[in-house]
Simulated assay, not measured.
Amino acid sequence: MIDTSRTFRMNSFLLHVLIALLMLLQVGCGSEPTPPSGSAPDVSANGPTRPIDSGGPVLSFQTQSHDFGDVLDFGSHDVEFPFVNAGTETLQVFEVRPTCGCTTTKLQKKIFAPGEGDTLRLTYSPKSSGRQVKKVMIRSNDPVNPLQSVEISADVTPVIKINPPSFSFGSIDIGDGAIGQISLEAAHPGYTATSVRLGGRLAPHATAALREVQSDEGSPRQWVIDVVIEKDVPWGIQNGSIGLTGALDQEDGTRSRHSRSIQVNGTVSGKLQTSEPTFRLLLLEPDKPFSKRITIKHADGEAFNLFSATVLEARSGNLQVQVLPVADSGGSEYQLLLTGDTTGFTGAIVGKVNVRTDVPGEEEIDIRISGVVMPPEG
């Protein structure tokens, strides 16, 4: 007999996963698809319009799109979206959710009698350049259009060009370190780069220094960020971010602070190689056991001793790891089996597996753990 309750629960979980993935795609601050020139704003999420005094609660916006036009990629820009409850019953706004970290919202109240209205205030702080289109989703008890959206757009001009916008060292041999450069060019005549600061896991093992370079007369000012990864950088994926701070002198005589973040990463390895760089658990169903395997082997096929593997810094309970020698590998290959249980836990799973071996220079390595437990139904 088919277990219909289990099938329904699994389908519901898959629906949650799909919604979460769609939201993750929207949350990034990069450009969203730009509608063709002259086309009408996309308000398909709002469904068909209804006349005033429709039955039930009706969330009715005066307008649902705003174009800021040409703006620089600093500071903030405000817009208001007036709305009214055009229905005959009480309207309740459950949630106002920006789809980008560069947009914040403010709504004074959440419950509105028939005929009562308010203003949804949005503040946009551009982080990317080019044509930008951002949406804010509004969920209410409007029975016909429970999920609506308002949209803002802008053509964003950067005041500083960063090349590359994010920097990867790629593979780094353990014990070697690495050196890289990031080029900066003022895209606005009033811009000056003033300082850089390195943060993240790379910070204890790397440095970042800013210096201005000579440019041709009449050319924009230029700088270079020299990034040095020290030889003591540990095994595994290492990432960090460079905070770039600058100042912008504007035509009205005011000076504004400008900041940008540049992501930096690299993968450090030696004789020990893994089938995956981290224990990526992705999205996990609540109240269920789970497992994940990673193979670790010697690059030259030589036998080595794997003395222990221990879960450290775990934020969720019941994480355990086992070491399983691979048959017929001659001691050159092992499997690490990570197991756990999501019972009574939701949210992010993080931690690391600390592995101890007798491989010179790689006597102790850490493999990161990451995943998310979805909330239970209801």
Results as ranks from 00 to 15, higher is better:
residue 21 L to H: 08
residue 22 L to W: 02
residue 22 L to Y: 02
residue 32 E to P: 04
residue 33 P to H: 06
residue 39 S to T: 14
residue 39 S to R: 03
residue 40 A to Y: 10
residue 46 N to M: 10
residue 52 I to R: 05
residue 54 S to Q: 09
residue 66 H to W: 14
residue 66 H to C: 04
residue 69 G to E: 05
residue 70 D to L: 10
residue 75 G to Q: 10
residue 83 F to D: 05
residue 83 F to S: 01
residue 84 V to T: 14
residue 98 P to M: 08
residue 103 T to C: 13
residue 107 L to S: 07
residue 110 K to T: 15
residue 110 K to E: 11
residue 111 I to A: 09
residue 112 F to W: 05
residue 118 D to C: 01
residue 121 R to Q: 15
residue 126 P to W: 02
residue 128 S to K: 09
residue 130 G to D: 07
residue 130 G to M: 03
residue 131 R to H: 06
residue 131 R to N: 07
residue 131 R to Y: 02
residue 138 I to F: 02
residue 138 I to Y: 04
residue 139 R to W: 04
residue 142 D to H: 08
residue 154 A to M: 06
residue 155 D to L: 10
residue 155 D to S: 14
residue 156 V to F: 09
residue 156 V to K: 01
residue 159 V to L: 06
residue 160 I to K: 02
residue 164 P to K: 05
residue 165 P to I: 08
residue 170 G to C: 11
residue 172 I to S: 07
residue 174 I to D: 07
residue 175 G to S: 09
residue 180 G to W: 10
residue 183 S to R: 15
residue 190 G to Q: 08
residue 211 R to T: 14
residue 217 E to C: 00
residue 218 G to K: 08
residue 220 P to L: 04
residue 221 R to F: 05
residue 222 Q to E: 12
residue 223 W to R: 07
residue 223 W to A: 10
residue 226 D to N: 15
residue 227 V to C: 10
residue 236 G to R: 00
residue 240 G to S: 11
residue 250 Q to I: 08
residue 254 T to Y: 01
residue 255 R to D: 04
residue 256 S to I: 06
residue 261 S to E: 12
residue 262 I to K: 01
residue 265 N to A: 13
residue 267 T to S: 10
residue 268 V to H: 00
residue 271 K to Y: 02
residue 279 F to E: 00
residue 288 K to I: 03
residue 289 P to D: 11
residue 291 S to Q: 14
residue 291 S to R: 04
residue 295 T to Y: 05
residue 305 N to Q: 13
residue 311 V to S: 01
residue 314 A to R: 00
residue 317 G to V: 03
residue 317 G to L: 06
residue 317 G to S: 12
residue 323 V to R: 03
residue 327 A to F: 04
residue 328 D to I: 08
residue 329 S to E: 11
residue 330 G to M: 09
residue 335 Q to D: 15
residue 341 D to N: 15
residue 347 G to V: 11
residue 355 V to E: 08
residue 356 R to Y: 03
residue 357 T to F: 01
residue 360 P to I: 05
residue 363 E to I: 01
residue 366 D to F: 13
residue 367 I to V: 14
residue 377 E to N: 12
